[in-house]
């Protein structure tokens, strides 16, 4: 069925509405003006040099990267293990356990933020790196599990069984049979987890203490000191997101072809 003129118009307008914020921010980051006007009166790289010249932004970027790296790796490990366990093993109360793992994705983040804020304050985890890593890992695990559940469910159990019958140890089975085939899924899950951690703002703002991440700094700037540096940060974030997702897609595709 070909859509009529009205449907097409509404759809295209909606698509434009969807991507408008993204295409507005990029040109503004190259603006020469210090006000937030669009279109920019002239072009310059001053907001990028202001970003890279600011110790606040640079250290926030490093904190974000380190935090996202640790959390996403830990989350990938724990999340895919749990996903494997839930898909492959018999477990009592499986539904409840799985819902428990997914809950941080479903509940409004403000609830998680407030709960962690109050609880972490009591046990001295507020403003610590350990507390931040715990929170981020818990928040990104559901995304890892969504990706890995699909992977494990579509992965043929008999392959493992064959390997086992042939006398391979569990470890060998994992290393030689399961992991090579799931590599792309693991990579995709890790990228999603990393991006998610890198973007997290609500919980981080509550529990980070003196740690400053890029989104936390952006959020406080949006409320405190609005400066066009923020458009440069936003553009860098867009570039980073697009690059990592494109990378993930590419690797997934390539490995699908080789398998």
């Amino acid at each position: 069925m070909t859509p009529n003129y009205a449907v097409r118009t509404v759809a295209i307008v909606t698509l434009g509405f969807l991507i408008l914020p993204v295409i507005i921010v990029i040109p503004m980051s190259f603006s020469s003006a210090s006000s937030m006007s669009f279109p920019p009166p002239g072009l310059s790289l001053r907001w990028y040099s202001s970003f890279f010249g600011s110790s606040v932004w640079v250290s926030a970027t490093i904190t974000s990267a380190v935090l996202a790296l640790i959390s996403s790796t830990l989350g990938l490990l724990l999340g895919s293990m749990a996903s494997y366990g839930l898909c492959r093993r018999r477990i009592m109360q499986r539904g409840i356990i799985e819902s428990n793992f997914m809950a941080p994705m479903i509940l409004p983040t403000i609830i998680t933020a407030v709960a962690l804020y109050i609880a972490f304050a009591k046990i001295g985890l507020l403003g610590t790196l350990i507390g931040l890593v715990m929170a981020h890992t818990i928040l990104l695990v559901p995304y890892v599990m969504v990706v890995m559940n699909v992977a494990f469910r579509s992965f043929d159990l008999r392959q493992e069984q064959v390997s086992w019958t042939m006398g391979a140890s569990w470890y060998t089975t994992m290393r030689r049979v399961v992991l090579p085939q799931l590599g792309p899924n693991l990579f995709a899950a890790w990228v999603f987890a990393f991006v998610h951690s890198f973007d997290e703002v609500v919980v981080t703002s509550f529990i980070a203490g003196t740690y400053n991440t890029v989104p936390k700094q952006m959020f406080s700037e949006l409320i405190l000191e609005i400066s066009p540096t923020i458009t440069a940060v936003a553009t860098l974030l867009i570039a980073f997101t697009v690059a990592s997702l494109a990378g993930a897609t590419l690797i997934m595709k390539r490995s699908v072809q080789t398998v």
Binding site: L78, A82, L86, I97, N100, A115, L116, A135, I138, V141
Partner: peptide, 23 residues
């Protein structure tokens, strides 16, 4: 199964369930 699930379960209980119970 315990081996696969327990690490995450411990983390989620300490870092999520207990805080939710606290509120």
């Amino acid at each position: 199964a315990v081996f696969f699930i327990l690490p995450l379960l411990i983390l989620v209980v300490i870092g999520f369930d207990i805080p939710i119970v606290t509120i």
